[in-house]
Design a protein around this nucleic acid. Structure first.
Length: 455
DNA sequence: ATCGGCTCGCGCAA
DNA sequence: TGCGCGAAGCCGAT
């Protein structure tokens, strides 16, 4: 049974006459632990109809070859897992507002999943307007549905935390897969072939200048990471999470970004693990409270990626320090090339460019230095977001947008006033040195020679 | 090594 | 209206 708060009905009409129930897969790109998919199957069973899963392949704003490789590897796997459950799958090229209404022509009901970015919301609004059958959206990529937590953009982690914790008992419940009563008869829908996925995204004309990331996409890779994390890393998480050399994080955020693994599944696995309470608490704080604070920020503030939506105190203090002398000023090209004077910053940039990820702790330092060494705070904000979205596998994500904005004061509080930052929280390399072996981090990403010149 | 102050606004108690 | 308190940091005092 899917909790009612996950299900957003657009109207009260009963299912139409149709040949199948259509699940339009977009955010939750997985065949298991997917509340939208299970809702579609339950509805199809009740109507004695098969379930078809449709996916619209289109140029996602800002996504490049690195992201498409990762996503399509996952989708190929998902297609196989869907088939094994007796579910149809149809991949079509084109924007959702064209592909989905076309697929829905013979559908009794359209079920969609929920995404929190503007482009995802716009797609859903356009699709809902253009299909004849009833439409429901099911929220499966938040542990606690965003609207059940709060009705406004929360000010900080401390204001959303008690609201989420109050509801965890209700929503931290396993999702049982529904048995498919009527299997989908193959061949009824013509679908693009995922076996040559590079050809698929190249046809969309997406940027091919960013090479593949080291991590492989897909639910199987995500579960290998989860198994490894729970078995070997979780117990030490509270201490090791903020050490970029220790490799103590789960590494799951790209998989969460593409919906290749469910946050609910991760949370239940971690909760049930034989690990110290401080460790599971620290991890669930990141996975649920911090992650869903970002979902809240995007949902209730559609200008989430704009500088001018930062809190008033942050805008004021940054403006007041607009003309402060910058010790260094770098251009977008210098930032992108990792060509600053600071080996720590260059190492973080190299980690991101080469692997498609950057350690959480370094993301903060990275953003703070962009603010410190750019001509203007607006320019720093734009550069940070653009580089994040281009190179991070989890770019163009609520967490990325909010993470960048955090460096400029979002969800934070004022601290001691200083040049350029005003009262925005400051970070420097001394802090890194206190916390971990900076030399080892720099050598890992820039080579031994760079580390040797450090201190 | 450890500790308090920094600075602002939320949220709850009166 | 007042006031406690935040919490992935820095910095200077002890």
């Amino acid at each position: 049974m899917i909790p009612a708060a996950r299900i957003h009905r657009l109207d009260d009409r009963p299912p139409a006459r149709g040949k199948f129930v259509l699940y339009w897969m977009q955010q939750s790109q997985r065949a298991e632990w997917n509340p939208a998919l299970e809702t579609a199957v339950e509805q199809a069973n009740a109507l004695r109809l098969p379930t078809l899963v449709g996916f619209a392949l289109t140029a996602f704003p800002g996504a490049n070859g690195r992201h498409y490789r990762f996503m399509l590897a996952g989708l190929r796997e998902t297609e196989k897992r869907l088939a094994a459950r007796g579910l149809g799958f149809c991949l079509r090229q084109g924007p959702p507002e064209e592909v989905v209404p076309e697929l829905a022509k013979n559908a009794a009901l359209l079920v969609g999943d929920v995404g929190y970015l503007r482009v995802q919301r716009d797609w859903r609004a356009a699709v809902a307007q253009r299909v004849a059958c009833p439409v429901v959206f099911v929220e499966g990529d938040a542990v606690v549905p965003v609207a059940a937590v709060s009705d406004h953009a929360e000010f900080a982690a401390r204001t959303i935390r008690p609201k989420i914790h109050r509801l965890l008992g209700e929503f931290l419940q396993p999702l049982k897969p529904a048995k498919v009563a009527v299997p989908f008869a193959g061949g009824a829908q013509k679908s693009l072939d995922l076996s040559d996925s590079d050809a698929l995204w190249r046809r969309l004309g997406v940027d091919d200048s960013v090479p593949a990331a080291a991590a492989a996409g897909g639910a199987a890779a995500a579960h290998r990471l989860l198994d490894r994390f729970v078995a070997h890393r979780l117990a030490e998480y509270a201490e090791a999470a903020s050490d970029p050399v220790a490799d103590g994080c789960s590494g799951l955020s790209p998989y969460l970004h593409f919906g290749q693994i469910s946050p609910l599944e991760i949370a239940l696995r971690v909760q049930a693990a034989d690990a110290p309470r401080v460790a599971t608490d620290a991890f669930l704080e990141q996975l649920i409270v911090r992650r869903e604070l970002s979902l809240n920020a995007c949902w209730f503030n559609p200008g989430y990626d704009r500088y001018d939506t930062l809190p008033a105190w942050a805008l004021k203090t940054l403006d007041r320090h607009r003309k402060d002398k910058r010790e260094f000023i770098y251009s977008r090209a210098q930032w992108e090339a990792g060509a600053t004077h600071d080996p720590c910053w260059n190492a973080a940039q190299a980690e991101m460019v080469r692997t498609g990820r950057m350690h959480n702790y370094m993301r903060m330092y990275w953003g703070k230095k962009l603010l410190e060494w750019s001509r203007a705070p607006e320019e720093a904000f734009e550069t940070a977001l653009a580089l994040n979205d281009k190179y991070e596998l989890d770019g163009r994500d609520p967490n990325g947008c909010v993470g960048v904005a955090w460096c400029f004061g979002r969800h934070d509080r004022p601290w001691t006033e200083r040049p350029v930052f005003g009262t925005i929280r400051y970070m420097n390399a001394n802090g890194l040195r206190r916390k971990f072996d900076v030399q080892a981090y720099v050598e890992r990403w820039l080579g031994p020679a760079a580390g040797g010149r450090l201190f």
